[in-house]
Design a protein around this nucleic acid. Structure first.
Length: 264
DNA sequence: TGATATGTTATCTT
DNA sequence: CAAGATAACATATC
């Protein structure tokens, strides 16, 4: 499902397709997913796009933003010409050059909203640091770990207010590569292991961005599928890269794969 | 048929 | 109080 690398991939592709374009009209087809206020973006220009956590932000030339969260099954489709909205369409943007962008969501959990600067600020206020930012140092990672010594490490990696953008796939991958069991209480992680985890989180996320993310089930970016699934060590696997059979448990209601030989 | 998958948040439990 | 577990959301797929 879309986590940081998948969302980053989508943002980069959207950047190339819609940045600089003027929105001629917006039609909301599913108001549960797409906010009716999206219509306020009519006649505005998309100046640039960026990602924050798992959110896609379209900057508009009036300082407001269109903000999308794909949750599990949301996706964008771009067409150079007017196209039929199709099944599961939540909203469709038509640009002044005749192209269009359609937002779909099968499960209808996704969100697509028009937000003013203070609304955007409020929406992002509880998010933790971006793991790939230069400002996210090992020292900062140690500082936030120290605040929750009794928590289980995997649960905090999934907590967007702790660190932003990591989901169920990359949490498990990073823990495997760092050699740490998902159930480890944070206070039991040595300084050396903290450093390894910090390094692996950044290495795995950066590598996955480079591979355009992971395609499992139905995630696909605008131009096809990701390629990181070929690099998965544990997620939905039966054996780790060292050929050890993997264990599976349910942590916080989420499936968790790990190797009891490689992870301690 | 029913279990499972997923991200996030609210709420219940320990 | 804190942290974990669970439910809720919606729907396709196995």
């Amino acid at each position: 499902m879309p986590e940081l690398p998948e969302v980053e991939t989508i943002v980069r592709q959207l950047q190339g397709k819609v940045a600089g374009k003027t929105i001629a009209s917006i039609v909301v087809h599913d108001s549960k997913v797409a906010d009716r206020n999206l219509s306020r973006a009519s006649n505005l220009q998309i100046t640039s796009l960026y990602r924050r956590a798992k959110y896609i932000v379209f900057n508009l030339n009036n300082k407001s933003s269109l903000v999308a969260h794909l949750r599990m099954t949301g996706y964008f489709q771009f067409s150079d010409v007017t196209s039929n909205p199709g099944d599961y369409c939540a909203a469709q943007l038509k640009f002044s050059d005749g192209s269009c962008l359609t937002f779909h969501d099968i499960r209808r959990f996704a969100e697509f909203s028009y937000l003013s600067p203070p609304e955007l600020e409020a929406r992002f206020s509880s998010l933790g640091p971006e793991p790939l930012d230069k400002q996210f140092t090992l020292q900062q990672f140690r500082t936030i770990l120290a605040k929750v010594p009794r928590s289980v490490i995997k649960s905090k990696l999934l907590d967007q207010s702790f660190i932003a953008g990591i989901g169920n796939i990359y949490a498990q991958e990073a823990l495997y590569h760092a050699g740490i069991l998902p159930t480890t209480p944070i206070k039991d992680i040595s300084r050396k292991q903290q450093e390894k985890l910090y390094t692996e989180i950044r290495r795995i996320l950066a590598l996955a961005v480079e591979k355009n993310g992971t395609t499992v089930n139905n995630y696909a970016h605008l131009d096809g599928k990701g390629k990181f699934q070929g690099f998965l060590a544990v997620y939905q696997q039966t054996h780790c890269p060292q050929k050890h059979p993997l264990q599976f448990l349910r942590l916080g209601g989420r499936g968790t794969y790990y190797c009891s030989t490689c992870q301690k």
